[in-house]
Amino acid sequence: MQGEREVVVCRYGHRPGRDDRMTTHVGLTARALGADRVVFPGNAGQSADTVRDITGRFGGPFAVELTDEQDALIRDWDGDIVHLTMYGERVQDVQDEIREAHADDDLLVVVGGEKVPFTVYDHADWNVAVTNQPHSEVAGLAVFLDRLFDGRELDQNWEGAERRVIPEETGKNVEQLDE
């Protein structure tokens, strides 16, 4: 979120055809819930294009990157690393510690898309579970970011939007903004 240290979500791995929708939703969730950018694997160009399009229409700032060097990104990260995994420590037990560390350092949040090698677990400062049960990595990312930002991400302002959703009790109201 603006005004804080950077939060970057790394979607680790992508199986074209199988993970397209999930990878896109990792990016959309990262954007909507306060991350500054997402890094997708190099073979996830379609997901990157979709997230860029949504950012253009509904506002930012939010950056989308592609890399073929995800292991190097993790290995060389200059900040703290959280790896979201069902095998990690309970989010409610480590959220305060992570939030305090994030005040001083940028944060890389790794979200697996396929079997994650043990080196990711080793490089992570925290291996964090949103429940120790199987579920969607998108749900895990959403809960984690909400805990990290303590709900402040729900009130963020969006710059450069072409459209804005007007909250209503019923119906759908999307306002086209003047440029």
Rank of each mutant, 00 (worst) to 15 (best):
M22W: 07
P167C: 10
Q176I: 09
L33T: 07
G160I: 07
D68P: 02
G34H: 03
T170N: 14
V128M: 09
D178P: 01
H123D: 14
E169P: 09
G140W: 05
V138G: 08
V38P: 05
E179Q: 14
H135G: 09
M86I: 15
E65C: 09
H25I: 00
L177I: 02
V26D: 00
P117E: 09
V91Q: 03
G151W: 05
E6K: 13
A32P: 02
P167N: 13
Q156R: 15
V109N: 04
R37Q: 12
P16V: 08
R57Y: 11
N157A: 14
D78A: 13
G151H: 14
R15N: 11
R18H: 09
Q46E: 15
G42K: 09
G88P: 03
F58C: 03
R163P: 00
L84W: 03
L33G: 00
R90H: 12
A139G: 07
V174H: 05
L28T: 06
I74D: 04
E114Y: 12
V51N: 03
R21Y: 07
N43W: 01
G3I: 05
E6L: 10
P167W: 11
G59E: 12
Q2N: 10
F58D: 05
Q176K: 13
S136K: 10
V91F: 11
A139V: 13
G171S: 03
Y12I: 02
R11D: 00
R164G: 00
L154P: 00
H14Q: 08
R31N: 01
A103D: 13
F118I: 09
A30V: 04
R57C: 09
W126H: 14
Q95L: 10
